[in-house]
């Protein structure tokens, strides 16, 4: 009964999100029922810091970014792939990252993204904030087991 109610709530939330588009990054609604996916709000909030952190390691492109995030999260962090590009576009407009057209291994055109100075600063801010949240949560969890 509890499981059915949860599924129903998730389904309704998915419909609501589809209609009103609350979060910039979409996750695969259907797969949310089967695998223990990370919450939609968290996925959306983590998009920018993750992209910035990945680009801090070097130039990359959309598909590689998505694959890297999937691999590192064990498939739990999933975006609707196409939705990454508006986020990248927005970050480019804000001067956090820059883009250039290059060539893929097969000779096709490919857009590569890299970090700008403002992006580095934004990434450091994100890291501070996420570390703070993590520290608070860890502290509270430790207290529960004392």
């Amino acid at each position: 009964m509890k499981g059915r109610l949860t599924n129903l709530a998730v389904l309704q939330f998915g419909r609501f999100q589809k209609r009103f588009k609350l979060f910039p990054l979409d996750v695969h609604i259907n797969s949310m029922y089967s695998a223990p996916m990370i919450r939609k709000e968290l996925v959306a909030a983590s998009a920018e810091p993750l992209i910035l952190s990945l680009l801090a390691r070097g130039e990359s492109y959309g598909y590689a970014i998505i694959q890297e995030v999937k691999a590192r999260s064990g498939g739990k962090l999933q975006w609707t792939d196409g939705m990454l590009y508006p986020v990248l576009h927005r970050m480019e407009q804000r001067g956090l990252i820059k883009a250039r057209w290059g060539e893929s291994e097969t000779g096709r055109k490919r857009k590569y993204y890299s970090l700008k100075k403002d992006g580095k600063n934004a990434m450091e801010k994100h890291h501070e904030q996420w570390t703070m949240v993590h520290a608070v949560l860890s502290g509270l969890k430790k207290e529960q087991y004392v």
Partner: peptide, 10 residues
């Protein structure tokens, strides 16, 4: 072009 590149990669 960028989206098509993504599609082809996948």
């Amino acid at each position: 072009d960028e989206l098509e590149g993504h599609l082809r990669d996948d």
